[in-house]
């Protein structure tokens, strides 16, 4: 449904994105992640036909954006990052205007506006001026704008930024309710949102794709040891010796002690189950186990690992 091949965009002589490629299948919700300035908005602006890429091509709804811009634009609903709105129009007038610019007129126009006013929870403010609305309601109006022409493709640039938690959940549910019928690309900095809403993610970093795939494979893509926390009462030296001898354990580090209890950080081979062996190792050192748990990498951790992993590679490259 959406295909991006080798997209590169220079602002002046500075590259914002370089050689970005990915695809989105019909009915899929793609999470678009990356730190500030990674090039997410730039990629989205190229997809919507707002600006041309320096090189590379993009297909939206199976049409080349550069070759058939008007058809592509008709099949896209776009919500820019800054959520621009005409502040001097009422909500219904604005939505009516925008949908008629997409070629919807007459009764169909009225129905379309009524439909999104309902689905975006705008009934109570429908006849108010947009300039008088709160940020959250403006965000909904922006989202309603992208939905009003019932487009098969939605491109949403940080649709939940600046909302309170309750509204974030509402908007998120709204986006989720669109699942299946539409192909959606959604950029966000709120990582839990990705796991709740998206089927797949593309992480871009410094203008390049750092990761593309399902969320579960994001975890396995991080090539790093598992981290476990072990606390026990007993002799620190004996415990450390026994724990280090467990097969699969790479490193044992003492992180502290309190009231006769010693705390260790254990690094083990990724994906290998070492907990039963660790638990058995403590009595073998005549200690008593008080705590044993595996540190879970949160989505944030994974994200930071991917991003900083890239940096590490670049650093190495620079040394050579």
């Amino acid at each position: 449904m959406i295909r991006v091949e080798g997209l590169t965009k220079f602002y002046g002589s500075v590259p914002a994105i370089e050689d970005i490629s990915f695809r989105v299948e019909r009915g899929e919700i793609l999470g678009f992640l990356g730190p500030n300035g990674a090039g997410k908005s730039t990629t989205m602006r190229i997809l919507t036909g707002f600006m041309p890429p320096t090189s590379g091509s993009a297909w939206v709804a199976d049409m080349n954006v550069a070759e058939r811009p008007l058809e592509v634009k008709r099949s896209i609903g776009y919500m820019p990052e800054s959520n621009p709105l005409y502040l001097d129009m009422t909500v219904t007038a604005y939505l009516g205007y925008m949908v008629s610019l997409k070629g919807v007129a007459g009764a169909a126009r009225r129905d379309a506006v009524a439909r999104v006013v309902g689905s975006c929870g705008l009934e109570s403010v429908a006849s108010r001026l947009i300039g008088h609305l709160s940020k959250g309601y403006r965000q909904r109006v922006g989202l309603a704008q992208s939905l009003v022409s019932d487009p098969p493709v939605l491109i949403l640039d940080e649709p939940t930024s600046g909302l309170d938690p309750a509204q974030i959940i509402e908007i998120r549910n709204l986006i989720r309710s669109l699942k299946g019928s539409r192909t959606i690309i959604l950029s966000t900095h709120i990582l839990p949102e990705v796991s709740l809403v998206c089927d797949r993610v593309v992480v871009i970093h410094q203008g390049r794709v750092a990761f593309e795939g399902a969320l579960d494979s994001l975890a396995t893509s991080v090539k790093e040891d598992d981290v476990l926390r072990v606390s026990a009462i007993g002799s620190a030296e004996a415990l450390q010796g026994r724990l280090s001898a467990v097969p699969g354990v790479r490193q044992v580090r003492r992180t502290g002690a309190s009231n006769g209890e010693v705390h260790f950080e254990v690094r083990a081979e990724r994906g290998r189950e070492v907990r039963p062996a660790l638990a058995a190792a403590v009595p073998a050192a005549s200690g008593q186990l008080t705590e044993l748990r595996r540190e879970r990498l949160t989505l944030e951790d994974l994200f930071v690992r991917i991003v900083s992993g890239e940096r590490k590679h670049e650093g190495e490259a620079a040394h050579v």
């Binding site: 036909g49 707002f50 896209i76 776009y78 820019p80 621009p84 005409y86 925008m98 610019l101």
Partner: peptide
């Protein structure tokens, strides 16, 4: 200034 030009330029308008 409002940024609405970005929206307009992604609409099917010449």
């Amino acid at each position: 200034k409002l940024g609405t030009i970005e929206l307009l330029l992604t609409y099917p308008l010449r």
